[in-house]
Design a protein around this nucleic acid. Structure first.
Lengths: 188, 188
DNA sequence: ATAACGTACGAACGTTCGTGCGATATTCTG
DNA sequence: CAGAATATCGCACGAACGTTCGTACGTTAT
């Protein structure tokens, strides 16, 4: 079963790539380093992707899957609207708190890295982030908030702030602050 | 006047370095590229700093000066407390909106880049950011808010969110959202 | 049996990185 | 005006970067 073997190798690479990129960035994610961590040759690993950019794009895709599994999937059984919105926010903060990615929120890292570098990588990041904020907004709308876009923006901001404070200062208190802010926002 | 000449060259270098770093990051800030943009030799430029890390630290210092000039200085004549806090927030959002740094908020960029890399550079960034958030908190306290730390965290978060949305999506509306959120926070 | 394919390898390419060394030009000091 | 100090230069280095090459080993298909 070569297809299986291939895919599992590729997936193992990407699993590690996502962790590495969350700490070192998508540019700091180096083929040589990734290869040595996977105990592969550079060329063997490189063959799975064909270019560094393809590796970066595949890494973004893999991170998106992990994010969906950790944050969106678990609230699938909750009713759309206020309840699911609360669940999403809960999982969102929890995902940062237990460091699903070792370098903190993957999207915070790579957004800051690529927001001044136009190209396919930046576009791919933008699509993922936009889809996530859009999901928050959609639930806010279903919950009947009168300015869902504003609410989604603030929820996203507060989560970003908590991630930043935790990653830079190790300040776990930031998660409590974020939850308090979110609770107040959702209670309006 | 050699000291003057030296310092002005060094300052000119750092002025460009700060702009470059806000777009490419402190690691992407490369001595070769910086030298060619300054129309200097690599070694000539390198002599001013002695190591890349020293260049990074000096760049952080220069960015801090520019930030202080643009955001903190202009509100010096306002009365401490609610008035100055409002002024600081105003200048804070304005500083992002008119892109004092071409890559957006310098601190947002370098924080995300270095928050997983312990060392003197990360420490220097942490001190600057902490001083800024501390300043917000101090004004919040002077203004009589009952949880200044929480307020400072939320103000900082919302500004971060606006910067992120603007840099990634070019979404200027985010500044309006940020101002609305801030106004609501300050009116409590 | 043999042809084709997927996967991995080691070696090398050209480029860029940060960093040193010695020489030259400019400027300040006595 | 002589000499010390400073600023800048060209050049070279070793390492790491992304990428390409030719090759070898299994597995699958013919």
């Amino acid at each position: 079963m070569p297809a299986t073997k291939q895919r599992s190798t590729r997936e193992a690479i990407l699993d590690r790539a996502v962790d590495l990129a969350s700490e070192e960035g998508l540019e700091g994610l180096t083929i040589g380093r990734l290869a040595s961590e996977m105990e592969m040759s550079k060329s063997g690993l490189f063959g799975h992707f064909g270019s560094k950019e393809e590796l970066q794009l595949a890494t973004i895709e893999a991170a998106s899957h992990r994010f969906a599994e950790e944050v969106i999937g678990p609230v699938g059984d909750q009713e759309s609207g206020a309840e699911r919105l609360r669940g999403l926010c809960d999982r969102y903060i929890g995902y940062m708190e237990r460091q699903v990615f070792p370098g903190g929120c993957f999207w915070a890292s790579v957004t800051a890295e690529f927001d001044s570098r136009p190209g396919p990588v930046r576009d791919a990041i933008g699509e993922k982030v936009s889809a996530w904020v859009g999901a928050l907004e959609a639930e806010a709308e279903a919950a009947g908030f009168d300015d869902p876009g504003q609410l989604a923006f603030e929820l996203y901001s507060v989560a970003q702030g908590a991630n930043s404070a935790f990653q830079l200062f190790g300040d776990r208190e930031a998660f409590g602050r974020a939850r308090a802010a979110i609770a107040r926002l959702l209670a309006r």
